[in-house]
Design a binder for these strands. Structure first.
Lengths: 335, 335
DNA sequence: GTGAAAGCGCTAACAT
DNA sequence: ATGTTAGCGCTTTCAC
């Protein structure tokens, strides 16, 4: 029905239409017991007729949960994060919750603004992929009762880590495995193209790469390491390849960098990419990758969050998801 | 400050701490004029000290806007839709709004549930990529004052289209152009692999393909058309290729189908894909595509929405964004 | 320039 | 089984 009253119908309107008290409508709407079926039917009919929908703001104001969680990622349009989004959304849906999401664009200030805006909207909890490293701003909110889980990167505080559950990938282990794989295939001069080392995952992957070299008795060579945004990766590799002692293999530090290398470099050395991507198997040679589990990251983070929301106590947990090396050809090329 | 009171501080608490009346705090929080700077400073200090944040639910209840819009897409993890998400999010941010998003998974019931749940949360407006074709459920909400814009596909009603702004791609035109391109390169037997024709975009693209064939005097051949989810596309093409009069070229109806074909078929005929995708240029041969503009779709839809929210009146608009054929090699192969 | 009071739509606690 | 009352935290009159 296209109502003729100004604004939306309220419980009061429904009560008047069904000739019952406000509270009876509330009981029916909330499925509370102790309502005569006949009365309930009358109320339901009035609800239908007026097109009534409960005003959630009022319910929340009264002290209820919002049944909404906030999600802060770096960029929805990046497949890695959109996988996380989907997983978080799925878990939220199973728990009857909605997701407010926002992209931080790797800007700590935007992250902070998003989180605080979400909190003003009284989200029940937050899944955060940290862009910044100082999460002091979160403490009052945690005190006030919001739950928070960090995903992909740990949340930080001057005094140490924030006491929140955290789900990470085994970044160092994955980079180590990728590097070892190249070494096993005969490579001695292996380049690493990673993102800015101020980003946790980038630093961890660099660490894993270096450890693998050291384990194999290969000295580090700074000329083979380039850290920074993907835009510069292609050029950086070109420079290395044009140098006096060019690398015979490359480990790329994330999906965007892998793509930049695939697109930007004519003559390609052996390649292992960190993070899997669509069509990696269709390229020739197909691209060997260290696969992360973004869906697992999102799912686990959301599940931890809802467990906390369900009242689970105990110390903050830190879960590290394993990576998986998928040989497809590019990482098995000889030097 | 990590407050010691139970719950969050309210305006009342701030008023008490600053020794002013509630209303003065409200004035400061909302930047209303007519407050003595010294008083304002005292209030601000109290706000800072207590870690006060306005309760948005209360403000909304009082009749304010939620500064939140709802976005319903098919699947966040699909690059086409995640591009739309990003664009919508960007526009929303510029307008000081947040985005509640949800994936319909191509299920009309989920779409309906998401939209109605968003409305119960009193979103100011909605951007909807319709999964269903009957949007009668929207009418009461539109009456109640929510704005809605359809993106990628039109919203429907038994009595005709819903009177909402709509932003579409030129699906038929794009498919027509792709088909003409293949015809120009000498192909006469051109297959079309599209999604289920109950999906608006799939039907439109099929229409464009057929029209191009007719324009060129090529009779339609149902053996060269396969409509359905991407999972079956590879096999469908294999069957066609194994048939008595195999196609020499294929037009794929969306990105997922293009990928399915690239992955599933050994021997590939000439190919034009509908919808661009990452690495299309890196494959060999590089993939010729009819590029849509998902970011433009999302941006335009969101901008129309905010224009309506700003009070713009007038009849529902229908905008059709052009597609662009990008020749890269696979579509220029000879028969 | 500041404040007191009413009420947004709902639910929890207490009647009947 | 049903109704009445009192707020949740805020903004909107209107008074000082």
């Amino acid at each position: 029905m296209t109502g003729s009253m100004r604004g939306r119908p309220t419980m009061k309107d429904v009560a008047a239409a069904a000739e019952v008290a406000l509270k009876t409508v509330s009981r029916v709407v909330n499925g509370e017991p102790g309502v005569n079926p006949a009365t309930a039917a009358r109320v339901l009919a009035a609800i239908e007729r007026l097109g009534y929908r409960r005003n959630e703001s009022a319910r929340v104001l009264r002290g209820g949960r919002t049944a909404t969680i906030g999600l802060v990622i770096e960029d929805v349009a990046d497949p890695f994060y959109s996988e996380i989004s989907r997983a978080v959304e799925d878990v939220a849906l199973r728990h009857g919750s909605l997701v407010l999401s926002g992209s931080s664009r790797e800007d700590p200030l935007r992250e902070r603004e998003l989180v605080l805006t979400f909190c003003a909207r009284r989200v029940d909890g937050l899944v955060i992929v940290p862009a910044g490293s100082d999460h002091g701003y979160l403490l009052p909110e945690l005190d006030a009762g919001v739950a928070a889980v960090f995903a992909d990167r740990p949340g930080g505080l001057e005094a140490g880590p924030v006491r929140c559950d955290t789900v990470l990938c085994d970044n160092a282990g994955g980079a180590h495995a990728g590097t070892v794989h190249l070494i096993r295939h005969g490579h001695r001069r292996i380049a690493f193209l990673g993102d800015d080392p101020s980003i946790f995952t980038a630093a961890e992957r660099l660490r894993g790469y270096r450890r693998a070299l050291a384990d194999a008795g290969l000295g580090p060579d700074d000329a083979l390491v380039a850290m920074g945004p993907a835009e510069g990766s292609g050029a950086a590799l070109e420079r290395m390849l044009a140098g006096p002692e060019p690398p015979t293999a490359v480990l790329t530090g994330n999906g965007r960098i892998t793509v930049a290398v695939l697109r930007g470099t004519r003559h390609r050395p052996a390649l292992v990419g960190f993070d899997d991507f669509e069509l990696a198997d269709v390229l020739s040679p197909a691209v060997t990758v260290v696969a992360q589990d973004p869906a697992g990251l999102g799912r686990t983070a959301a599940e931890l969050l809802f467990r906390r929301l369900a009242g689970e106590h105990g110390p903050a947990r830190r879960i590290e998801l394993p990576t998986r090396l998928i040989p497809r050809g590019s990482g098995e090329l000889p030097p």
